[in-house]
C-alpha cells in the first residue's frame, strides 16, 4: 500500500474513532436519569394473603401472555421448570426473607407472593449495555424495551431478588391461549413484571391487585399521602426484601 492510501486510512480511522467517542459522550450526558415524578408501590398484607389461592398469579399471567411451563402441546426440547417465566409467583417467607429467618421462625414455610420490586435504585438497569431496561421518570416503573434487549442476561445477574426471567424457549410454543391485547415476547429476551404499565395507562389497577379477592394488595403512589399504598403503609408495620443492599424496593410486606 502506498503512503497516500495509508495516511488516508489512518486519518479516516482516527476521525471515525473520535466521532464515536463524541457520540458516546453525548449519549452519556443525554441519558442522565431524572427523579421519578411518582413513586408507585405495592403493599402486600400478609395477614390477609395466605398465598393459598392462585388468583393474582393467574390474572397476571393471563393478562401478559406469560407461558405455562408444561403445555402438553409443546413441541421441541422439554422445558425444565427452572427455565420457566415468572412475573409474580409464590415463594416462602423463608425464601424471600432467607437472611432474616431461622428454624424457629413460625411462618417461614408459609407461601409468600413475590415479584419485581421496581426498586428506587435498581442495579438491573444500571448494568444494561443497550438501555433496554430503565426506570421510568413518570412513575418509577422499571420497564424493559423488548425490541432493544439483546439477551445478555447481565440484568439477571444484577437483580438481587431473582425477579427476572429469560425466554429460553419460544414463548408462543408454551402458551395455551394467546390474549390478543398484549404482545408475547420473542425467544432470547429478558422479561419481568411491568406493574401493568399498559393497564395503568388506561386508568386501571394492576391485574393482580384487581384480582385479589382477599383485598390484600394496595397499590398507589407513595408521594400521594392518600393513595391506598400510603394509607396501608401508615397503618401497619411493613418490611421490604434485602433493604441493606440499598436498592430501595417498592414492594412492601405488612407482617
Amino acid at each position: 500500500m502506498d503512503r497516500g492510501k495509508r495516511n488516508f486510512l489512518k486519518i479516516a480511522g482516527l476521525t471515525g474513532a473520535g466521532a464515536y467517542v463524541g457520540f458516546v459522550g453525548a449519549e452519556a450526558i443525554g441519558n442522565k436519569p431524572g427523579k421519578a415524578k411518582k413513586k408507585l408501590a405495592l403493599v402486600i398484607d400478609t395477614r390477609k394473603c395466605k398465598g393459598d389461592c392462585p388468583d393474582c398469579i393467574a390474572a397476571c399471567h393471563r393478562e401478559h401472555n406469560v407461558p405455562e411451563e408444561h403445555n402438553p402441546n409443546f413441541k421441541g426440547p422439554p422445558v425444565r421448570s427452572s427455565q420457566g417465566i415468572k412475573w409474580i409467583w409464590l415463594s416462602t417467607f423463608g425464601g424471600a426473607f432467607h437472611e432474616q429467618v431461622n428454624e424457629h421462625t413460625g411462618r417461614r414455610k408459609d407461601p409468600l407472593v413475590v415479584l419485581c420490586n421496581h426498586c428506587d435504585n435498581p442495579p438491573c438497569t444500571r448494568v444494561c449495555p443497550t438501555k433496554a431496561t430503565w426506570k421510568r421518570e413518570s412513575d418509577g416503573i422499571v420497564t424493559i424495551d423488548m425490541h432493544r434487549c439483546i439477551g445478555c442476561r447481565f440484568c439477571m445477574a444484577a437483580c438481587p431478588y431473582g425477579s427476572r426471567s429469560f425466554n429460553f424457549h419460544d414463548p408462543r410454543k408454551n402458551l395455551k391461549a394467546v390474549r390478543p391485547g398484549f404482545p408475547t415476547r420473542t425467544i432470547g429476551v429478558v422479561e419481568k413484571c411491568n406493574f401493568c404499565a399498559e393497564r395503568l395507562g388506561e386508568g386501571l389497577l394492576p391485574a393482580c391487585v384487581e384480582a385479589c379477592t382477599k383485598k390484600a394488595m394496595s397499590f398507589g403512589d407513595l408521594k400521594d399521602k392518600d393513595s391506598p399504598a400510603s394509607v396501608a403503609l401508615r397503618s401497619a408495620y411493613a418490611i421490604t426484601r434485602k433493604p441493606a443492599l440499598g436498592t430501595g424496593p417498592e414492594v412492601y410486606y405488612i407482617l
Binding site: P183, T184, T186
Partner: peptide, 10 residues
Amino acid sequence: LKCFHCHIMP
C-alpha cells in the same frame, strides 16, 4: 415478519 413474533396477528 419479526413484528409478529411478539405482536399478535388479528
